[in-house]
Computed example of a mutant assay.
Amino acid sequence: MPKLAAFPKAFMQALCKDSTMRLSDWIKLAVKLDIDGLEWYAGFLEMADEAAWPRFRQQVEQHGKVIPMMCCSPDFTHPDAAFRQREITKQKRWIDMTYALGGSYCRVLSGQRRPELTVDEGVNLAAECIEACLPYAQEHGITLIIENHYKDDFWEYPEFAQKMAVFCQLVEQIEHPNFGVNYDPSNTYLAGEDPLELLKRVSHRVVTMHASDRYLLEGTIADLQREESGSAGYAKRLRHGEIGKGLNDYDAIFTELKRVGFDSWISIEDGVDGMEQLERSVAFLRHKMAQYWP
């Protein structure tokens, strides 16, 4: 059966910006959940101190949990080669971070969808940078996972490989045993596309998953698609919500993942309305996982 992790979606500002929450506080909350691990984020303020990395691993593992996945956001589509090299250096440090924490999966992205780039140019730049990181990842026993992402909080432009056709082109260009897909069904809606269509195209490459759900505050998916065309901002109509209550069809998602033999980590990227919501999302996923992986 796949394993379940959780990500502190509700506490990112507190953990990454204003220090109003400590990582030890998040660990104390998370280990009470019926989960197997905690997904980490490279931008937690306290992770700036490398000497602290072993301590955080110990704090998690003493509760019988692990840190399986690292979430980070390299920007590999910048036209300047020196900039891209700095991003490769950062990615290698995040691999070190993942390794020190005992993790197996470290996220990569394509980069920003800068308007001057053609699709082929952007895909080639991103692939070149990811491939430059893969030998280092392999040395450390880390798999680099590319997410069908929407937009990093601190980027000017959305994800270069946000659209399905571009994402699939990039994934197909990189063949390596330490490279795979982190599938996020909700992000596909932000691209104005069908999450099940994407999953069927990449399911044989999926090695981890973000479990999330979105719901429309108003209007329709067609309204969303019109608004999102060429937009650099977040979709105002879509909101994160409790898993199982939104747009995603988890029966169809898990049917496809089971079909291809998926047996890895599913990390919950919800709970924006508090820990009780996160507990309900955990319960929903545990029930569904038991159905499909009895």
Results as ranks from 00 to 15, higher is better:
residue 147 E to N: 07
residue 60 V to W: 00
residue 237 R to D: 00
residue 274 G to T: 11
residue 81 A to S: 13
residue 225 Q to T: 13
residue 233 G to H: 12
residue 21 M to C: 05
residue 170 L to V: 10
residue 131 E to Q: 14
residue 120 D to F: 02
residue 140 H to Y: 06
residue 75 D to R: 13
residue 171 V to I: 15
residue 191 A to N: 00
residue 116 E to N: 03
residue 267 S to P: 09
residue 149 H to G: 08
residue 253 I to T: 04
residue 146 I to Q: 10
residue 286 R to K: 03
residue 21 M to E: 07
residue 10 A to Y: 13
residue 214 R to L: 15
residue 174 I to S: 01
residue 196 L to Q: 11
residue 246 G to D: 00
residue 182 N to M: 13
residue 165 A to L: 09
residue 51 A to I: 05
residue 51 A to N: 03
residue 173 Q to N: 10
residue 88 I to T: 10
residue 118 T to R: 05
residue 126 A to K: 06
residue 293 W to S: 03
residue 141 G to H: 01
residue 258 K to P: 01
residue 82 A to I: 12
residue 288 K to I: 10
residue 218 E to S: 15
residue 155 W to C: 13
residue 53 W to K: 01
residue 179 F to W: 03
residue 8 P to K: 06
residue 273 D to H: 14
residue 156 E to G: 10
residue 253 I to V: 14
residue 197 E to N: 06
residue 171 V to A: 12
residue 195 P to N: 04
residue 209 M to G: 01
residue 157 Y to G: 08
residue 145 I to R: 05
residue 234 Y to C: 02
residue 199 L to W: 01
residue 128 E to T: 15
residue 193 E to R: 02
residue 290 A to L: 10
residue 230 G to C: 12
residue 52 A to E: 11
residue 32 K to R: 13
residue 252 A to G: 01
residue 168 C to G: 03
residue 41 Y to P: 05
residue 149 H to L: 09
residue 30 A to H: 03
residue 286 R to D: 06
residue 174 I to T: 04
residue 287 H to G: 08
residue 87 E to I: 04
residue 283 A to D: 09
residue 74 P to R: 04
residue 292 Y to N: 04
residue 251 D to N: 00
residue 219 G to M: 00
residue 161 A to F: 00
residue 13 Q to R: 11
residue 45 L to E: 05
residue 185 P to G: 10
residue 167 F to G: 05
residue 2 P to I: 01
residue 236 K to V: 10
